[in-house]
């Protein structure tokens, strides 16, 4: 019987896999499912789609009938939503897929839902955040461990935009910040000649020591992952 984590994007998948590896090479056999959003999935760029969460849960329910799934963890970005709204989104998907009245009431606590007369699965959720809002890039910015001169100078660029009445959301800014941090601050001259291979998100997260996985910012997420 397996334990599966649902994440939003490929980058979320790399991050969680890197964190699991840091916690323990094989943390209770936890696997990260294929992300809900594919890399060229424009539908997801504007935030998580309810339908994608429902489809992902539906596929896992079908898989559970064949292979057996003990636990499913749903990891979403908090973004600018309240925790309550995020939980509601998750509960709507659970109700639609499992045809149940059982609801999650708090994050990181499992509920047991029936799949059929003979099978159940435990579900829990966690929302990636820093001080109650944000997404993966917000967390990465908060746990960076190397100098970030290039990335930090983006603040000046942002101020320049604001002075010219151009808006850049925190979400978009954080994405730029992480990209520049990985691509310029943490990519050596030699690596830059093969930046696509040597400085990609996956390599940056899994193979380089440029993020502090012991940061207290990650305590909540780590406790969630250890609960499986």
């Amino acid at each position: 019987m397996s334990k599966i984590l649902i994440v939003e994007s490929e980058n979320d998948k790399y991050f969680i896999e890197a964190l699991l590896c840091h916690l323990h090479p094989n943390l209770n056999g936890l696997q990260v499912d294929e992300p809900m959003c594919q890399i060229d999935d424009y539908q997801c760029l504007n935030g998580l789609d309810q339908k994608k969460l429902t489809n992902t849960l539906c596929n896992l329910k079908d898989q559970a009938l064949k292979d057996g799934i003990e636990q499913i963890g749903i990891i979403l970005d908090q973004d600018n939503e309240t925790e309550k709204n995020r939980i509601n989104l998750v509960n709507e998907a659970i109700a639609g897929v499992f045809n149940t009245q059982i609801k999650i009431s708090v994050i990181a606590q499992f509920v047991t839902v029936p799949i059929d007369d003979n099978l159940t699965v435990e579900l829990a959720c966690y929302f990636t955040n820093v001080d109650g809002k944000g997404e993966l890039e917000t967390v990465l910015k908060a746990i960076k461990s190397q100098k970030s001169v290039y990335a930090d100078c983006l603040e000046e660029w942002r101020n320049c935009l604001q002075a010219r009445e151009k808006e850049l959301s925190d979400k978009d800014f954080d994405k730029f910040w992480v990209s520049v941090y990985q691509r310029f601050d943490c990519c050596s001259k030699k690596e830059k000649s093969q930046a696509f291979k040597k400085c990609s998100q996956e390599v940056s997260l899994k193979n380089k020591k440029i993020y502090n996985f012991d940061s207290p910012v990650l305590d909540g997420l780590k406790e969630f992952l250890k609960s499986f």
């Binding site: 019987m1 339908k51 992902t56 559970a64 009938l65 057996g68």
Partner: peptide, 24 residues
């Protein structure tokens, strides 16, 4: 085969769900 009962089951997949699964 059902993981618990080992009886043969049919899992009906709606097309959106099937599309999603095939993409991944």
């Amino acid at each position: 085969r059902h993981i618990k009962t080992h009886e043969i089951i049919s899992i009906k997949r709606d097309m959106d769900n099937l599309d999603h699964a095939l993409e991944r």
